[in-house]
């Protein structure tokens, strides 16, 4: 078998693996929906959902790995700043911290507000800068 044959057969194998991965992703997305739905039930039932949150966590890590492995290097910067913007989701935690604040506790107000400010910087800045960057990526066809 010469080199180019070897390359072609390797390419074919890689393609087959990629197809398998796409299938797995679809299944994981389905599982995640189920898991989240199950958790909704659990939440309404009672607390004690630690096991389920860990389950969701494990699936999400796995999904994240599957999603990113195939990204071409030219997109690394936007991918990084785009996923960085997603990590600003901690803003939800900041909002919850400012919910039902006990009377007479300036400490919660200060910490919560600081959390909202810094998370907003992350969210707004992250999405805008990613969009600005991606707006510059042009194909030859688009001129």
């Amino acid at each position: 078998m010469n080199n180019s044959d070897l390359l072609i057969s390797m390419q074919e194998k890689i393609d087959a693996m990629q197809d398998a991965l796409v299938g797995m992703e679809a299944r994981i997305a389905g599982l995640m929906e189920e898991a989240a739905a199950t958790e909704q039930v659990a939440e309404t039932a009672s607390s004690g959902n630690m096991g389920l949150t860990l389950f969701v966590f494990a699936l999400a890590i796995f999904l994240g790995v599957e999603l990113i492995t195939k990204v071409p290097s030219q997109l690394h910067t936007p991918l990084m700043s785009g996923s960085n913007a997603i990590s600003g989701i901690t803003i939800v935690g900041a909002l919850v911290a400012l919910q039902n604040v006990p009377a007479d506790s300036p400490m919660v107000i200060i910490l919560g507000t600081l959390a909202v400010i810094t998370a907003s910087v992350n969210v707004v800045g992250g999405y805008l800068v990613t969009d600005r960057m991606l707006g510059m990526f042009k194909s030859k066809k688009e001129g």
Partner: peptide, 15 residues
């Protein structure tokens, strides 16, 4: 115990 935080946080962590 907020799922959306866990999911998106771990997506970013993994990526």
């Amino acid at each position: 115990s907020n799922t959306v935080l866990i999911v998106s946080g771990s997506l970013v962590g993994a990526s």
